[in-house]
Design a binder for these strands. Structure first.
Lengths: 220, 220
DNA sequence: CAACTAACGCGACCTGGCTCGCATTAGTAT
DNA sequence: ATACTAATGCGAGCCAGGTCGCGTTAGTTG
């Protein structure tokens, strides 16, 4: 989840070339600059003021861009959130590789815990995910974001299967999801605080279930 | 979760007396009628048109109440959603009691699955929970709702512990939560569809973890 | 370098969510 | 019954969010 924070830094730091360009469009310097500036401004405003106080005017003022431009390209606040998530999903992600699956999975859950309990790190991802849940467009982007994230992290499991540390037919994505899902559930559905035990428990339970054959991809 | 549907039926069916009255206020007939009418209208509008098309005007028109009344008592759409959830949390809930914890927990997860896959049942709870995630006020109400729900369902576990079907120190609420959380996670965070396997898997994994001592309330 | 045009800047305008002050209705008390 | 007062009804009005048409800027092409 720390990539969300890194995204903000990246965007505010250097403009850089366009990440993705559509066909027939103009990928040149200005459009790309506007995009990064606006998305960065969105994340900053979101982090500082929260979703409820988030206003397109403030974003435009901070990014030095006109209101109509934002509404034309993004359609509104929800589009901005979705785009921010889309950019985050493209970011590369460090995956633990300690040699032990158990440790790797624990570290995966642990990273989520660390991110969302650190007062400095938590603000942006918390606000961003919370904001994404507030619209259908954002929810779709969030779904895509997690799909990409889980796909990346699943490497931990496939590696372990290859090394014989886990049963052959275990579904990698399902295991990763099981190890982190309880944390997100607490954070955004039931609104309970996160503690270290919850992170450890989630990872341990996921591994237990995997070894019991509950995540077998083959059996219906 | 079916209580959410039942709530709608109850409210649209009969006005009934006031459920809860604050001190110093006027619990009499009209205020209570207005409350049930407005909340019922909110759920109906939410179910039919979805959150994005939800407008206070439409709710007022349907409930036969003036706009200012709604804004005064509920403050806005988020307050209406929160109140609807508060009423739902008060509803009594049927808890499975088959004699076997494993079956009971499976049924708990199964009920969630059934509710959110049945086209008739799913609409209202889906829209209501989705709407609750769209505001801080709604999120708080949702948190309270799940707390109440889990507390009720935890009886299944305490019963099992008393009968020696589960280790003595297992945290009842934690087990219930683990058995249903993955389903809500799929529905509202990652946006994946629900299948029968996911429900079965969630329940089985939760029981497995409980028996492995992961949900022990005593150990830090 | 010159023509072309996608994308942006600008400001007026409009829609609708939300508020405010006062009149009216209907529970509540004596 | 009568007086009292929450709570609602009512409509005017405010203002932020969002739109539209046109002029301007700046990539892109030849």
């Amino acid at each position: 989840m720390q990539a969300l924070k890194r995204l903000e830094l990246t965007l505010t730091g250097n403009p850089g070339p366009a990440q993705a360009a559509k066909a027939g469009t103009r990928p040149g310097g200005r459009s790309a600059r506007v995009r990064t500036d606006v998305v960065a401004a969105t994340l900053s405003e979101l982090t500082e003021k929260g979703y409820d106080q988030l206003t397109v005017d403030a974003i435009c003022h901070r990014a030095g861009v006109h209101k109509a431009t934002v509404y034309r390209r993004w359609g509104g606040v929800d589009g901005l959130i979705a785009d921010a998530l889309a950019l985050s999903a493209d970011q590369p992600w460090p995956i633990p590789d300690t040699g032990s699956v158990d440790e790797d999975i624990q570290l995966l859950a642990r990273e989520v815990y660390d991110t969302f309990t650190d007062p400095d790190l938590r603000t942006t991802p918390t606000a961003l995910i919370g904001a994404a849940l507030r619209s259908d467009l954002g929810a779709s982007a969030l779904s895509a974001f997690f799909t990409a994230r889980h796909r990346q992290a699943a490497e931990v499991v496939t590696r372990a299967v290859a090394h014989g540390q886990l049963p052959a037919h275990v579904d990698p994505v399902e295991l990763v999801r099981a190890a982190t899902a309880p944390l997100y559930h607490r954070l955004f559905i039931t609104g309970e605080p996160l503690d270290e035990r919850a992170a450890h428990r989630a990872a341990a339970a996921a591994l237990l279930a995997a070894r019991a054959g509950l995540f077998d991809a083959t059996t219906p």
